[in-house]
Design a binder for these strands. Structure first.
Length: 433
RNA sequence: GGAGAGAUGGCCGAGAGGCUGAAGGCGCACCCCUGCUAAGGGUGUAUGGGUUUACGCCCAUCGAGGGUUCGAAUCCCUCUCUCUCCGCCA
């Protein structure tokens, strides 16, 4: 009767254990109104049962009309019997639809349940450091931040970008433009050649169904750039959206799993900058490039897959020789779709701080349920929701900043990390000074 | 952009108002036969939802959304997508 119930959490579980779900979601600072939900649920159940009974009656009677007609009998009295059944059915359906819409709105807006060992906490200040790699370089001169470095020869130009578009965009020229490209190439090659990823080229524009699937819609539409009022097209905020939606409404064979995708795309975010944070420099832009990693795996493999994926992202930082730390997000800082997230924070000498450069999440079956992404379980031969994970491997712009700031020399030039030299056509020093 | 044709289950493909959740085939699973290989025979095999301790029963779904009808895969309208031809084009 109800064709599409849009949910992220399994509605059966929510119905069966509403109190427990509320408790678990409280960790994510989400208030689930159990009473309101239960009232609606009760109404829904009664209405649905009743309406389906009417429907059943109509189906049965219509069938007997068909039979009578075939037998050459008079069907007029049978049709007369149907009289008010149609109206009753219509009314029932309408009432049910309204209740169902209210329930769907609640369910579709509920975030995913955090893992048990996710720490309690309000915001990023309560994230928990897991490990560190590398030691921040001690400079014997006064360090410049990437903005100062980039402006030495005009290779990083925010003013011109704002002429072209507006604030929160950047123009890169010459060696910095190349460094930016080199980083993306290096990351993709590493993931393909060493970590077993399949390279993908994907649309930078997606429809609303894809965004619902990964969880950006319906709640976070304000963060997106929408293209047309009439077509429901959006610029992607991350390649996670098209990459994960590759399997939307698909039933994969188990041999096709695990799937590991790597994809370099620009990302467009409207919200970036609306809080007045990081107004200076390339940290927070409306457009930035990212190399994204996506895993599609069987349910019992997703825990290990997140560790692997995070390791792959870390590998890039290690090869580049950039000091970083890994933090586990606390409940309050965890994203809508995630059960568990590790952020990689790279050391930025210009800010004297660790800053996020990658975010790796396991969404378990949350996105898969929204997009009906399944695989055929060889044991039961039945379709089952798969698990989806995603992580940056890495954000290209921020990586470039990190390279600039960590490899700067007193004269303002930048030493090219060894692994990037081939990608820079043999160039060993970027001479900005 | 112009002109046509289409969209049906995991896949291919019938059906053109009622007994069709949907023939047939492929694939897959299990069983039988066959001393290898090849072939043959049988049975089963959609998804989502509701309800039930359970067996089960019920509802929905033939690209999407509306409409006509007692009844729609089938008729009408709108939209989306795919294919063919023409034009344009990186």
């Amino acid at each position: 009767m109800i064709d599409k119930i849009v949910i992220m959490l399994d509605p059966k579980i929510v119905r069966a254990n509403p109190e427990q779900v509320a408790k678990l979601l409280a960790k994510k600072k989400y208030a689930f109104d159990v009473d309101a939900f239960l009232v609606l649920e009760e109404k829904r159940k009664a209405l649905q049962t009743e309406t389906e009974e009417w429907q059943n009656l109509r189906n049965t009677r219509s069938k007997s009309i068909g039979k009578a007609k075939a037998a050459g009998e008079d069907i007029a009295p049978l049709i007369a019997e149907m009289d008010d059944l149609g109206t009753k059915l219509e009314q029932g359906k309408e009432a049910l639809k309204q209740i169902q819409e209210q329930l769907n709105a609640i369910l579709a807006g509920m975030p995913n349940i955090p893992d048990e060992d996710v720490p309690e906490g309000e915001d990023e200040s309560e994230n928990v450091e897991i490990r560190r790699w590398g030691d921040p370089v001690e400079f014997d001169f006064e360090v410049k931040d990437h903005v100062a470095l980039g402006e030495l020869k005009g290779e990083m130009d925010f003013e011109t970008a704002s002429k072209l578009t507006g604030s929160r965009f950047v123009v890169l020229r010459r060696q910095l433009a190349r460094l930016h490209r080199a980083l993306a190439q290096f990351m993709i090659d590493t993931h393909v050649n060493e970590n077993g990823y399949e390279e993908a080229y994907l649309p930078y524009i997606v429809n609303d169904e894809s965004l619902f699937g990964t969880g950006q819609l319906p709640k976070f539409g304000d963060d997106l750039f929408k293209l047309h009022a009439d077509r429901d097209f959006y610029l992607i905020p991350t390649a996670e959206v098209p990459a994960t939606n590759l399997v939307r409404n698909e039933i994969l064979e188990s041999e096709e799993l695990p799937m590991q995708l790597v994809c370099h795309t620009p990302c467009f975010r409207s919200e970036a900058g609306s809080y007045g944070r990081d107004v200076r420099g390339m940290i927070r832009q409306h457009q930035f490039d990212k190399v994204e990693l996506v895993h599609l795996v069987e349910p019992d493999k997703s825990g290990a897959a997140l560790e692997a994926l995070t390791g792959h992202a870390e590998g890039i930082l290690q090869k580049l020789g950039l000091p970083y730390r890994v933090v586990m997000l606390c409940g309050g800082d965890l994203g809508f779709s995630a059960t568990r997230t590790y952020d990689l924070e790279v050391w930025l000498p210009g800010q004297n701080a660790y800053r996020e450069i990658s975010s790796c999440s396991n969404t378990r079956d949350f996105q898969a349920r929204r997009m009906q992404a399944r695989y055929r379980d060889p044991e039961t031969n039945k379709p089952q929701l798969l698990h989806t994970l995603n992580g940056s491997g890495l954000a290209v712009g921020r990586t470039m900043i990190a390279v600039m700031e960590n490899y700067q020399q007193q004269d303002g030039s930048i030493k090219v990390p060894e692994v990037l030299v081939p990608y820079m056509g043999g160039l060993e020093v970027i001479n900005l000074g």
